[in-house]
Design a protein around this nucleic acid. Structure first.
Length: 764
DNA sequence: CTAGGGTTAG
């Protein structure tokens, strides 16, 4: 939730008297004097021969007349000004304004009030305020126009100030006025103010009024109170499209997407036609649910109702297709757009960022990441200025891609544009540096943040935990508590994982208990996963398996794979086989698990089991384990596969790996000896020391193409094998380089022959 | 009343 701006909205609002005296002022606009004004679009034109005739004027003709100083009936100003609004032409409005003053029509309250409205809509609030201040008389409509202007120009706090001024001046709010203040309170997330206004609306029995009810519904939704939002919605006597849309988007804001779609269906069956707002809200619900089927149905409804050219609707459809993995459909929409908003770009980048995480295979994840970086480049070249949404999304992409160089460029750009002051952008930046292994830069950004949210703290604690800096992680956790920020479930996962890395059993169990007792946070599977991991690392397998039995959850794939790797490391193969077979039941198509299992059977030469596992793999139609790595150097991504000669430097790179291997052998590196394997097994098990695993190639390439002390950053699609893990430790010792490898399960930071994962991250 | 953003581990 955004923090409240420091605006004086304090003190109770005294509405009582006004409402008691004039309760009807809420519902009737008679007093405003507007209802009786009828305006006309035809003018009496005086021809050159002196005869006169009434006829319609078009906008340009009328403007010309006004520029020439001809007289115009004051009732004609309003349609003319309306036209200025429609054309969003502040300059035309100023011409008309000048004419109004010259002809003395500024004495006309109706016309002048409309001018306030015009300037507000044309986003020149200074002029709106000036016109308002010069009014000799003010009625509720002029006050309301000004308030509404501030709300629409993102100054809700000023709108509330005007509301207070209005009450002081003794004017009576209408239901429309109250609706605007309610909207302002919801923009400010001021539930207190909202509740006061709600109370008054109940007192004067207008809480069932449509526009009040709509505003109340969205106010409660924005402040996170879905129940009250529903109550407000149900109370509305005559529900219109806006009421339904408010209820639907309330569900979206509060994470109950399926309920929102139920509302949408109900609305359709009530015979109410959705508008562009309803459609975008409903599409966004499909998006969170990743419900492509429902989304396609709504898409056809969009076409039927003629909204397919509406930009927000198109953006929502594009984002839906993108998130559901229909990249080509999304791209077609993207390329076919004549008008594009920044949101279109942002949706495209954010969508690709999400695919990276959702992707089943690493190749498409990698392609999405590259595509997102390309779109960002195009956006920059197109001259459109990125905003805070763009920065946070692209930083997430850089994190997933371990693209430190791009990340640093974005960092610089966000400083220049002033968006680094945004908490979300800064947090995304902290996270980017963490994920790229630059813990120093991450903490520098973190320290320089002026305010931090729970997520910022958690991200930094997680960073320290990942880098094996347990003390700093725990210290930061204390700092956070002292700062009065309440940790959540996610924070505790990071804290427990920090303890687990350092083997601090007592501390971990202490935090676990404190989480349950002091913070009333229910442990989830992830917390147990950390504890299990801790016992596994220490070789306390009994306790690890004990926890598996004790917890209320069926262990997930991650817990089983932790157990497999741990049992293997600690030589408890029987338990390892058991865990691996359980893992295979959960993920029968996971080649990595089969390879782990195969390697275990081979190491104890249980050849019967080896052929049984091979048979299982054939039945599942699983082939060789595809493994590859990539490294980003100067905005260019270089990817490597073993035995792949497609890279222009592949020959040099291979030779360099061979020479490195010789050099580290003299430091004590021993390649894993090949067992008596068939060719087939040797290929599948990744044991063969003669083959070049992709991370070795990528690292060699990095060493050849970066300056001497530069860290090397590599990303790998599957877990590292032990041989390579050992090899890279020696390389970091040999070359005195920092080598960071992010594989599919773990961040490895190799410094001086040691790895931050404590050697527990090499699963294969 | 609408579309786009940041956190965890194994």
């Amino acid at each position: 939730m955004a923090s409240l701006p420091s605006v004086a909205v304090s003190g109770n609002i005294k509405l009582d008297q006004d409402f008691r005296k004039h309760p009807t002022s809420f519902i009737s606009s008679e007093k405003s004097g507007i209802a009786n004004v009828s305006y006309q679009k035809s003018q009496t034109i005086v021809n050159s021969d002196g005869s006169s005739e009434p006829r319609s004027l078009d906008f340009r003709e009328a403007l010309v007349m006004i520029r020439e100083g001809s007289k115009v009936e004051s009732s004609y100003y309003v349609p003319l000004l309306q036209e200025c609004i429609d054309r969003n032409s502040a300059s035309d409005a100023q011409v008309v304004h000048g004419h109004i003053i010259k002809t003395g029509s500024h004495q006309d309250l109706f016309v002048t009030t409309f001018l306030v409205n015009v300037y507000a809509k044309c986003r020149i609030m200074e002029n709106a305020r000036k016109v308002f201040d010069k009014l000799s008389r003010r009625n509720v409509v002029s006050w309301t126009a000004l308030m509404s202007g501030y709300v629409h120009n993102s100054r809700p706090e000023l709108s509330i100030r005007v509301f207070l001024e209005m009450l002081e001046a003794g004017a009576y709010p209408t239901n429309y006025t109250l609706g605007i203040v309610l909207n302002a309170s919801s923009t400010l997330y001021s539930i207190e103010l909202g509740k006061q206004l709600h109370a008054y609306s109940i007192k004067y029995q207008i809480d069932f009024d449509t526009s009040i009810g709509n505003s109340l519904c969205s106010l409660y939704s924005k402040c996170g109170n879905l129940e009250s939002a529903f109550k407000a919605f149900k109370k509305i006597k005559e529900k219109n499209v806006i009421s339904w849309t408010s209820a639907i988007s309330a569900c979206g804001d509060n994470g109950d997407a399926s309920k929102g779609l139920a509302f949408f269906t109900e609305m359709l069956s009530e015979g109410i036609e959705p508008n562009e707002y309803t459609l975008t809200s409903a599409l966004s619900l499909c998006c969170t649910m990743l419900s492509l089927g429902a989304g396609i149905q709504i898409h056809s409804l969009v076409i039927k109702l003629g909204y397919e050219l509406n930009l927000p609707v198109r953006n929502a459809i594009m984002y839906l297709y993108l998130k559901c993995g229909m990249v080509n459909e999304a791209r077609k929409l993207f390329n076919g757009m004549e008008a594009m908003s920044l949101i279109t770009w942002n949706a495209m980048i954010a969508g690709h960022a999400q695919i990276i995480d959702l992707a089943e295979d690493d190749l498409s994840a990698y392609q999405s990441g590259t595509e997102a970086l390309n779109i960002f480049l195009k956006l920059n070249r197109s001259g459109v200025k990125p905003d805070l949404f763009t920065f946070s999304s692209i930083l997430t992409v850089c994190s997933s891609m371990v693209a430190l160089e791009q990340g640093e460029q974005v960092h610089a750009q966000s400083i220049k544009s002033g968006f680094l002051s945004d908490i979300v952008v800064a947090t995304a930046l902290v996270n980017m540096y963490n994920k790229c292994g630059s813990i120093e830069k991450a903490s520098k950004v973190f320290i320089e943040m002026s305010t931090r949210t729970l997520i910022s703290w958690t991200s930094m604690i997680a960073g320290f935990a990942q880098h094996g800096r347990t003390q700093q992680a725990l210290q930061l956790f204390e700092d956070m508590r002292i700062a009065g920020v309440r940790p959540n479930q996610v924070t505790f996962v990071s804290v427990l994982s920090a303890c687990s890395h350092a083997g601090m059993v007592n501390e971990a169990l202490g935090y676990f208990e404190s989480m349950k007792k002091d913070y009333r946070i229910k442990p989830v599977m992830d917390h147990y996963a950390c504890l299990i991991d801790m016992f596994v690392r220490l070789g306390r397998l009994d306790e690890a398996f004990g926890l598996v039995k004790k917890m209320d959850f069926e262990p997930n794939e991650f817990i089983w794979s932790t157990l497999v790797a741990g049992c293997r490391t600690h030589g408890n193969l029987d338990r390892g086989f058991y865990a691996a077979e359980r893992l295979l039941k959960l993920k029968p198509k996971d080649t990595e698990t089969y390879v782990m299992l195969l390697n275990m059977y081979i190491s104890v030469e249980r050849w019967k089991d080896v052929s049984r596992v091979r048979k299982m793999m054939k039945e599942e139609k699983l082939g060789k384990l595809e493994e590859w790595s990539w490294i980003t150097i100067k905005d260019k991504v270089h990817s490597f596969k073993p035995n792949d000669k497609s890279h222009p430097q592949s020959e040099d790179v291979q030779k360099y790996v061979e020479s490195l291997t010789d050099q580290v052998k003299s430091l004590g590196y021993k390649a894993v000896e090949s067992l008596e394997l068939t060719d087939e097994d040797a290929e599948t098990t990744l044991f063969s020391s003669t083959s070049f695993h992709s991370e070795k190639l990528a690292i060699a390439f990095g060493l050849l193409n970066t300056p001497n002390a530069a860290p090397i950053r590599v990303i790998k699609n599957i877990s590292m094998c032990r041989d390579c893990h050992n090899f890279v430790k020696f390389i970091s010792l040999l070359t005195s380089r920092e080598i960071i490898i992010r594989d599919s399960k773990c961040l490895h930071k190799f410094v001086n022959g040691k790895c931050s994962c404590g050697d527990f991250g090499a699963l294969l």
